[in-house]
Computed example of a mutant assay.
Amino acid sequence: MILSERIDRDAYNGIAMTPRAESSQESRPRLQFVDCHLERGPAAFTRVTVRFSGPYFTDGSYICRQEGTTSEGGDLRLAVLATFDALAAASDAAMRFELIGVKPVRAFDTTVMMVAAMVRDGAEPRRVVGAAIVEGDAMAAAVRAALHAANRMAAPLLGPLS
């Protein structure tokens, strides 16, 4: 028994922890964020367009749009809702999302985008939280945080294609 196995057994009360198979993680296709675009219209109207790619869509890409009123928090909310629509489409509606909130938070001399949501995937609804560092574009960070929030729930549903 090597040292790391002993540490794992000691830390987990005698239960042997098996390492994850890297090949299964690599073979699992993922929904990939391509870009997002914000359009402001008359009378405080906003449209957010988010583009994704992945093998789940017939032409390899998916464009999702959300529209609403103009505000900084509202624009971030629309980007997250568009992301959740894309995840629902990629999972053939097996997953449903209810956005709790999206908020930029200042922490450790940087801004972090936080997303909280309820996920329903046939079982009990579960609360998930995701975070992403804001690197210039707050809407792109909101999309990445939404993907991080849904990642654990989406991975089994978006697993290897049959």
Results as ranks from 00 to 15, higher is better:
83 T>A: 06
135 E>D: 09
94 A>V: 05
148 H>Q: 13
80 V>S: 07
59 D>N: 14
40 R>Y: 11
103 K>E: 11
130 G>V: 08
22 E>G: 08
34 V>W: 03
129 V>K: 05
130 G>S: 04
133 I>T: 03
112 V>E: 01
110 T>S: 05
123 A>L: 07
99 L>G: 07
85 D>G: 09
91 S>W: 03
140 A>E: 08
113 M>N: 00
115 V>K: 02
106 R>C: 10
81 L>C: 05
19 P>T: 14
87 L>V: 10
30 R>S: 07
65 R>P: 01
23 S>M: 09
102 V>Q: 03
30 R>F: 08
73 G>M: 13
20 R>G: 10
65 R>N: 14
90 A>E: 02
115 V>Q: 00
20 R>T: 15
122 G>P: 00
19 P>E: 14
82 A>D: 00
129 V>L: 07
80 V>A: 13
123 A>V: 08
56 Y>A: 13
133 I>K: 01
100 I>K: 05
132 A>D: 00
36 C>Y: 02
119 V>H: 00
69 T>N: 09
136 G>V: 04
25 Q>R: 15
134 V>W: 00
119 V>F: 01
32 Q>H: 10
42 P>C: 14
64 C>H: 12
88 A>E: 11
147 L>R: 08
53 S>N: 03
35 D>H: 12
119 V>Y: 01
100 I>V: 14
118 M>D: 04
120 R>M: 10
92 D>R: 07
46 T>E: 06
25 Q>K: 13
58 T>S: 14
42 P>S: 15
137 D>T: 09
42 P>A: 15
135 E>C: 10
126 R>P: 01
44 A>V: 10
76 L>Q: 03
48 V>K: 03
117 A>M: 04
120 R>I: 11
143 V>N: 03
105 V>M: 09
97 F>S: 04
98 E>C: 13
21 A>D: 13
75 D>F: 10
70 T>R: 11
25 Q>N: 08
21 A>C: 13
75 D>S: 12
27 S>C: 14
121 D>E: 10
76 L>S: 04
30 R>N: 05
